[in-house]
Measured scan of single mutants.
Amino acid sequence: DESNKPILLPNESQSFERSVQLLDQIPSYDTHKIAVLYVGEGQSNSELAILSNEHGSYRYTEFLTGLGRLIELKDCQPDKVYLGGLDVCGEDGQFTYCWHDDIMQAVFHIATLMPTKDVDKHRCDKKRHLGNDFVSIVYNDSGEDFKLGTIKGQFNFVHVIVTPLDYECNLVSLQCRKDMEGLVDTSVAKIVSDRNLPFVARQMALHANMASQVHHSRSNPTDIYPSKWIARLRHIKRLRQRICEEAAYSNPSLPLVHPPSHSKAPAQTPAEPTPGYEVGQRKRLISSVEDFTE
């Protein structure tokens, strides 16, 4: 099969070098950035008060330690540790928490760990991170309901609301924008112990962030949302095809390698009803078989 044979790379090609550099910018793992907010007593309706908090309760602090690993920003190499735009020179604080497994990295933009500057009256330095995160974990210690939209931002799609209760338990629920209701189930609340709260809140936030990324990708319907490693695979396959075309153009005697095509017509299947918005969006999480067989 010609399409699977190794090909020689061009010795000097600026377009090839640019493509390789672009490939280096696509990590081999999925990345997520999640905002974390603490809401104190009497702050449920005040964005400024929430963003001005420099610490929270003892249970909130224990919750943070379970979310991930504490890292010092100045020691991080952005090409190895995903920071979601946090500055490593102290502009966004000294520490944050991050978490990773074999296929993804997540960083938490924690408002109480970011510096509260006197010259920044409206807390814009914090909002440029927190307001651009799709998902926020809100530790609501106010005793009042927290409403979506209290923290203004164009991309605040989903809130994971943590409400501490007695007996070391917590109520965990989801809020989302109306255009996200087909992807996020907000109907079920959970009672979770303090011990298990970081794991549950983190998983709910990661799932909500993946759904938000799919939702946000609708602005470019021709580019369905893939995982990062599938995006790398697609980029490599496009690069291979372009090299083959350039080689055939410079030397017409060489065969032009095309991806294999299936001449056999697909079997006719009964027509199915058109899937609704929710089903269609969830299918976009699934990769096409052509990603692996071309």
Rank of each mutant, 00 (worst) to 15 (best):
Asp24Thr: 03
Lys127Asn: 06
Asp125Cys: 12
Leu23Asn: 09
Glu294Ser: 10
Leu285Ile: 09
Ser136Glu: 01
Ser288Met: 08
Tyr38Arg: 00
Ile286Cys: 12
Ile151Met: 12
Val36Glu: 00
Leu86Gly: 15
Lys126Asp: 04
Asn251Arg: 11
His235Asn: 12
Val81Trp: 13
Gln94Asp: 07
Asp166Gly: 03
Met210Asn: 01
Arg282Ala: 12
Ile137Gln: 00
Glu62His: 05
Leu171Arg: 05
Asn196Gln: 04
Arg59Phe: 00
Pro10Gln: 13
Asp79Asn: 06
Tyr60Thr: 00
Ile230Gly: 11
Ser19Leu: 12
Gln25Arg: 12
Lys5Trp: 14
Lys80Ile: 05
Phe292Gly: 14
Asp92Cys: 05
Leu254Lys: 15
Phe155Lys: 14
Tyr60Val: 00
Thr293Asn: 13
Asp87Trp: 01
Asp223Ser: 08
Asn170Gly: 04
Glu294His: 08
Lys80Gln: 03
Lys147Glu: 10
Gly68Ile: 05
Gly93Pro: 14
Lys126Ser: 05
Val214Glu: 02
Thr274Gln: 10
Leu174Ala: 04
Thr96Phe: 04
Leu9Gln: 12
Asn196Pro: 01
Ile243Ala: 07
Tyr167Thr: 05
Asp118Met: 12
His129Gln: 09
Tyr249Val: 12
Tyr277Gln: 14
Thr274Arg: 10
Val160Ser: 00
Phe134Val: 02
Leu183His: 09
Gly93Lys: 15
His129Asn: 07
Gly56Lys: 02
Asp87Tyr: 02
Pro115Cys: 05
Ile137Pro: 00
Glu278Gly: 15
Arg59Pro: 00
His109Gln: 04
Pro273Ala: 14
Ser261Asp: 14
Gln203Met: 14
Arg238Tyr: 14
Gln241Ala: 10
Lys127Cys: 04
Leu256Glu: 15
Asn209Ala: 11
Lys33Tyr: 15
Phe95Leu: 03
Ser57Trp: 01
Ser19Thr: 13
Asp166Val: 02
Val162Ile: 13
Ile224Cys: 09
Glu245Tyr: 09
Gln14Asp: 11
Ile161His: 04
Pro198Glu: 00
Ser227Cys: 08
Asp141Leu: 00
Ile191Gly: 01
Thr186Ile: 06
Arg59His: 00
Pro115Arg: 06
Tyr29Asp: 04
Pro266Arg: 12
Leu70Thr: 05
Tyr29Arg: 13
Lys127Arg: 15
His262Pro: 15
Ala111Gly: 05
Pro259Asp: 15
Gly56Ile: 01
Arg242Asn: 15
Leu239Asn: 10
Thr116Leu: 11
Arg232Cys: 06
Arg234Tyr: 04
Glu144Tyr: 04
Ala247Leu: 08
Cys89Met: 10
Glu290Asp: 10
Asp185Thr: 03
Leu113Pro: 03
His32Phe: 07
Gly90Met: 05
Tyr139Leu: 00
Thr186Pro: 05
Cys244Ile: 12
Gln14Ser: 06
Lys264Leu: 11
Tyr167Met: 06
Asn45Ile: 02
Gln175Met: 11
Ile230Phe: 06
Phe155Thr: 08
Cys98Ile: 15
Leu51Thr: 03
Ser3Tyr: 05
Ala201Met: 01
Ala248Tyr: 06
Asp166Phe: 01
Asn156Pro: 13
His262Cys: 12
Glu41Asp: 06
Ser250Phe: 10
Ile7Trp: 07
Leu197Glu: 00
Ser219Phe: 08
Val138Trp: 01
Gly85Ile: 03
Met180Glu: 01
Ser193His: 04
His100Ile: 14
Leu130Tyr: 04
Cys176Ala: 14
Ala267Cys: 12
Glu12Val: 08
Val119Phe: 12
Leu130Cys: 04
Thr222Leu: 06
Gly280Ser: 12
Asp101Ser: 02
Tyr225Ser: 14
Leu73Asp: 15
Asp118Leu: 08
Gly42Ile: 01
Ile191Val: 08
Tyr167Val: 03
